[in-house]
Design a protein around this nucleic acid. Structure first.
Lengths: 191, 191, 191, 191
DNA sequence: CATGAATGAGTCTTCATTCAT
DNA sequence: CATGAATGAAGACTCATTCAT
């Protein structure tokens, strides 16, 4: 196994541990054992527990957001795009339950504020895409003249919330609930 | 100061500490010092840190929910009641920023699942009220034939989310964002 | 054993450990074991290893200097006082070999500089006494018109040096060497 | 770069690191990086951190002492030679501040005892030269009938002490203090 | 009721040294 | 010669909880 593979393995197992136990309850030893390394050897690859955590989260967020953006390719109907975005943002987490779990245990990850300089940059990209969509809809008289900034943030928040419900809390009715929410919310902005 | 007063004091100060630092970062000593007791003496009143935390949260949630319910007294217009509920649920937290902070740092508090035997019962009361309202609206053909269970939960979640944004993250635009959200969402269920 | 006694015990054993192994090589566990406490319990009395060390050193220095000053009581012959001071400064360490050892392993303790704000204040007291003596001697035309500031520091340094030789390095000839040095040095300032 | 050059480079950089951080705080990695080698490769040239340190110190001490001895060439006035020796011993360290720094952080380097098998042999050479000078002075009735062994050691110690003051502690007044000391001390042994 | 004191089980991190390739 | 990777043994400090008095 070469260095790159090992680094990937570490990220994978660290993510798994952080997802299961949260940042605090995960010990560096937990991760080291998961990758079948000694703690000291793990520190050869990673500068600190915190840094590893940040890497794990950052990568997961980016992967998530990229997937969502890609899903819009080729679609031009704005209402449809909004649905698509929501759906993909939501269902993507089926493939990344761990990220959900991590978010659930550290919700600050997703707060888009100035004070926190953690993952704001990553999140902002998603919100920006959303805003773009809404603005186009308003301009095209497809959507009501809502405040796009506020609404973009609101929609983003809903995704997160539903995502947590569905995958972290394993609320069985979450997917349905999500569809219902989406229905209500899109209905609510249509002209 | 009698035992009851002391107990109240402990709850108050514990809440304050948990709000500021979160469960993990709050030490039993922090609380003991806040109530001007020794750690050991605090343990006379409280079985464990965890139990104290649970008490604090439970009481805060109950107070919150009760306040909201009371706000509906005398109102009979369903759409108006929905607004009222939302507004009060939202603005109540102005009076209890600490609860927000606690929720923000431990969002599992608000997950309504069976497995978690923490605060589900408390939350359920609120959701039930909401559901009742929605059901009446659907029956009276004021609202679209939405799924009331899912929608009740969805609305409840939105409250929580906005509440965190507003009071914990101190997002300045949160109140506006909340109104925008409420507008969209109620628009979205109207027949 | 009451708290005061225990605190004294800790200081005593800490001093012993620091003297034997030096600051770095002394583990908190070493000290804890010496006082027959658990490490955690030791931390009940002491904020940190560093703080404990500083306390130990500071107290030892103060005790040393006080003893020397007391030895001059009743004497008025300046040359004789200089001898007395030297002798007592030197022989006192017979009673405190540990301090020597500590100094030998951390000579910065005795550097009287502005940058280091560690024990400068304590050392300065001794140097001041010395300077006072020299100044009187110069004024009284007993000593040559030497620079009292420089010479006070020089003499102070010689004490330290000899002290280390004698007690730390256990150089058997140190006491004789010290007398020889004293002889030379006092001869060297006499008019 | 051949092996010899590499070895010289290692010694040079190791000295630099030890001077800056002291033995303990210098990591093998620090040195390896300074010589642009990997840690492992460094171990090809050096048996252990300790051994490297000892080499560094030993060589520096030898260079220092040789320089001092050379400075006496051609001079025959004993009092003058004593001055010369002192001056050169003192000012040499201007050219080797690193050695000073190392000494300051590990004063045991200069202790001339039998038990310590570290640098005693090296130091002894200097002391021997000093003793020779003093003995000649006593024999020639230039100096008082002092104990040459004790005095040689005493003088040697003074050099060291002043050297540390001047170059390590960067005491601005050290050179003056040194002259004052030399004045007193030589005055003190003159017949 | 109240408290000072005690404790055990962690936790992260560092580093000299080794070794297979 | 050179290196990436591995490791063991430490070491300082924290904290919820207990208990004798």
């Amino acid at each position: 196994m070469d260095a790159e593979q090992k680094w990937a393995l570490i990220l994978r197992e660290a993510k798994s541990s952080f997802a299961r136990f949260g940042y605090r309850k995960t010990t560096v030893d937990d991760i080291a054992q998961a990758v079948e390394m000694t703690k000291s050897n793990l520190y050869f690859y990673v500068p600190s527990k915190r840094a590893l955590y940040d890497q794990v989260v950052r990568r997961a967020l980016i992967a998530w957001h990229e997937k969502v953006i890609r899903s819009l390719a080729g679609e031009h109907d704005l209402k449809r795009m909004l649905y698509l975005m929501a759906e993909h943002a939501f269902y993507y987490l089926n493939e990344d339950t761990q990220l959900c779990s991590i978010i659930a245990q550290d919700p600050a990850i997703l707060s888009s504020e100035q004070r926190e300089d953690r993952f704001d940059d990553v999140n902002q990209v998603s919100i920006d895409s959303l805003r773009g969509l809404l603005q186009q809809g308003v301009d095209a008289k497809v959507f009501r003249p809502i405040d796009v900034d506020l609404t973009a943030e609101f929609f983003f928040s809903i995704y997160l919330m539903m995502v947590i419900k569905a995958y972290v809390n394993k609320d069985q009715s979450a997917p349905e609930q999500f569809r219902q929410a989406l229905d209500i919310v899109i209905q609510g902005i249509l002209l």
